[in-house]
């Protein structure tokens, strides 16, 4: 009987410890939020920039101004959205399954 009590106590203590660790981790992850935010912003802008640059270059080569620029700019915009969603997805899956997954410590 006494052993059972001890077992319960240990389980409770372990649970509390686990929870406090998880709280610490969650804080850690939100501290990296700045990095994730900057990643999203730069990837969004870079995609649009590259798309527009490709379109502009193709216009120069094929003398189709301004059609390539318009099409590739829109493609770049779509790429930017795709990239931002991808980063957000990674970040979300990392913060949700915080338990024991080492990737959550990286926060990205």
């Amino acid at each position: 009987m006494a052993e059972d009590d001890l077992g319960k106590k240990i389980a409770a203590a372990q649970k509390a410890h686990e929870q406090s660790r998880n709280v610490g981790r969650r804080k850690d992850v939100s501290g990296r939020g700045m990095g994730v935010g900057m990643r999203m912003a730069s990837e969004f802008v870079a995609s649009i920039f590259v798309g527009a640059a490709l379109g502009w270059g193709l216009d120069l080569v094929f003398h189709t101004s301004p059609w390539m620029l318009i099409v590739w700019f829109l493609l770049g915009f779509a790429t930017g959205i795709v990239n931002v969603v991808r980063v957000a997805k990674d970040f979300q899956s990392d913060t949700n399954d915080g338990q024991g997954d080492d990737r959550s410590e990286q926060g990205l």
Partner: peptide, 9 residues
């Protein structure tokens, strides 16, 4: 486009 934008971002 995403691949090309990587070094730039």
């Amino acid at each position: 486009i995403s691949f090309l934008s990587r070094p730039i971002s």
